[in-house]
Design a protein around this nucleic acid. Structure first.
Ligand code: FES
Ligand code: FES
Lengths: 143, 143
DNA sequence: ATAAAAAAGGATAAAAAAGTCTTTTATATT
DNA sequence: AATATAAAAGACTTTTTTATCCTTTTTTAT
């Protein structure tokens, strides 16, 4: 569904959202531990998200990653789009060069609905909205 | 969503279903052209599907690939499972080691529904059932 | 000023996926 | 029986994805 990079990215972003809700910042090491990902790899990914403005970062002692107001209201769809592009939202399920209503592949009609469901959900899910459940151990970012 | 291998596999199988409906067989070259895939690559994929019994093949002159009665009633889900495993049906959307109802990731509840939709459709779709629409150019396997 | 902490950046390595090429085996036709 | 045809098999290459390592830059606290 998502690339591994994207899976890590989402987990990291949600972790940062939760840990930085109070205005503090969280370092790479803690993030990597918190989502059980390779430290250097997630560092790379966050560099990227940071350049694209989806997470904020500060160098130096007591620095780290955090989400500002704007980022807290970004959606999972934004993260997915930045990392994986929009193949999942608009690409053909069977890999035809482009998905098309007038020359559809055999899966088109059904998968269109499914893609819309996915998009609808990812677009409605704001990065900050899982904090409470994460806090209360109703949701997990590693196992 | 699917691996490239799986996309080709599905397209090939549906192509074979259509072309062999009348009992004839269809060769690799024609299949590769018909679904616009690399010839040797699809050959390899079909080898695999053939070993697993999802398509039938015959060597030698006037040989080729075809689907027997049983295979015509196999489903897209069978193909996907053979090629991509069942990660898409039961894996965690965020890559947690296993998807779990009691320790769910933040996407679990929504993605569970989506996965079920996907499974429902793929399981209901028999390989032979697209022949008519393919014949009538209502569906396409290449572009 | 200086040392320490932390992210940024670049280079490389390892693994997996995608794709190609060559040889072997089976079989239908002659 | 000989031949031509077509898939099966296996070895190999390339590309992409995933992961690691090391150096540099920035920032803060002392
Ligand atoms: S054409 Fe394949 S999903 Fe639209
Ligand atoms: S735990 Fe992630 S999808 Fe079920």
């Amino acid at each position: 569904m998502f690339s591994k990079t994207c899976e890590y990215a989402i987990r990291a972003v949600l972790f940062i959202a939760q840990k930085s809700e109070d205005g503090s910042k969280v370092g790479i090491r803690e993030i990597a531990k918190g989502i059980d990902s390779p430290e250097h790899f997630i560092a790379k990914i966050l560099q990227d998200l940071s350049r694209k403005g989806l997470v904020q970062s500060q160098k130096g002692p007591s620095g780290g990653f955090y989400l500002d107001k704007t980022s807290l209201h970004a959606t999972l769809a934004d993260v997915v789009r930045v990392v994986d592009g929009d193949k999942i939202f608009s690409g053909c399920a069977l890999g035809l060069k482009q998905c098309s209503e007038i020359k559809p592949c055999p899966l088109h009609h059904e998968f269109k609905k499914i893609r819309e469901d996915i998009l609808r959900f990812l677009q409605s899910a704001k990065l900050g909205e899982f904090n409470r459940q994460l806090e209360q151990d109703l949701f997990f970012l590693k196992r």
